[in-house]
């Protein structure tokens, strides 16, 4: 479990003294195996929030606790980073190796995993992320979608318990976006077959409301605070409030509501109509 207790974060501005509050007293529990989608307009504190979860940033007030470990305690750093993987918006900023297979092996080497085990994990990961044919390719020759898949593959190879995605689909074309999203939601469905302790918890930051519809919980950040925290179907009822925060709701949420209000359809009929979309 990741717990945030009264977490605030203040950035220093140009002059070095005045500051702005990027996170403002956040209280939150992220439970094992949850798939949490996080939305918020640019500057709402999303990325700061993400970086607080694996101790890339330590809150200026309050505390973040990852499986009983305080992120402010430097001694916990290695263990926290191993448990909480991160996938960023731009894969170019996180890929470091000269070939695809080395990139996947990189984290394992650092963890001191034995060669036979490493070999096995690398092979399994290449297969799972459909990167086998590129194993010897330099990562910069991959397409954007493939690079993002590689970034995720390298994180998954380390067997993290939590993965934080900071707008991983923002730079992808719609097809690659869809592919990555399917991989994410596959992790969620695989969780159902696992013991709670083996499940992977996903914290998925995105700007696209329709990407959050299959999540367990949608969190909307506004001005450093949590404005909504509920199941997607409930959160997206608040169309006006969400628009006022500079965000959007999935088009189907809005249209479903209209079909009920203006066309006299029942909720069941509406769900049936949109089934499989």
């Amino acid at each position: 479990m990741i717990q945030l207790n009264q977490v605030s974060f203040e950035y220093k501005n140009d002059e070095g003294n005045l500051s702005e509050l990027a996170l403002d007293g956040i209280n939150l529990e992220i439970r094992e195996g949850e798939f949490i989608a996080v939305m918020g307009r640019n500057g709402s504190g999303k990325s700061t929030f993400a970086r607080c979860l694996n101790a890339l940033l330590v809150p200026t007030a309050g505390e973040v606790i990852v499986d009983h470990m305080l992120t402010s305690d430097r001694d916990n750093l290695i263990e926290i980073r191993r448990k909480v993987g991160m996938v960023f918006q731009n894969p170019d900023n996180q890929i470091v190796s000269t070939t695809v297979e080395r990139e996947i092996a990189f984290g394992l080497e650092n963890l001191g995993v034995s060669t036979p085990v490493m070999h096995e994990v690398v092979e399994g990961t290449l297969r799972r992320f459909r990167l086998e044919e590129y194993r010897k390719h330099p990562p910069h020759l991959l397409s954007g979608g493939e690079k993002q898949r590689l970034a995720l593959a390298a994180v998954m190879a380390m067997n993290p318990k939590y993965i934080v995605f900071d707008e991983p689909t923002a730079m992808l074309d719609p097809i690659s976006q869809q592919e990555l999203l399917n991989i994410l939601y596959d992790i969620k469905s695989e969780n159902l077959k696992k013991k709670t302790t083996d499940q992977i918890t996903i914290i998925f930051i995105t700007q696209f409301p329709e990407e959050t519809l299959r999540s367990d919980r949608v969190l909307i950040l506004n001005k450093g605070r949590i404005a909504f925290d509920d199941r997607p179907e409930y959160v997206f009822q608040n169309i006006k409030e969400i628009r006022n925060m500079g965000l959007d709701v999935p088009i189907e949420s809005e249209i479903k509501k209209m079909l009920v209000e203006y066309k006299g359809l029942s909720l069941e009929e509406v769900d049936e109509l949109f089934h499989g979309l």
């Binding site: 719609p174 088009i251 249209i255 979309l277």
Partner: peptide
């Protein structure tokens, strides 16, 4: 061309196909 129909158009198409 590997282009996905925008979400809103998928919705419009669905409503049209079902006569809504």
């Amino acid at each position: 061309a590997n282009i996905l129909l925008p979400r809103v158009l998928q919705v419009i198409k669905r409503l049209f196909d079902h006569g809504v």
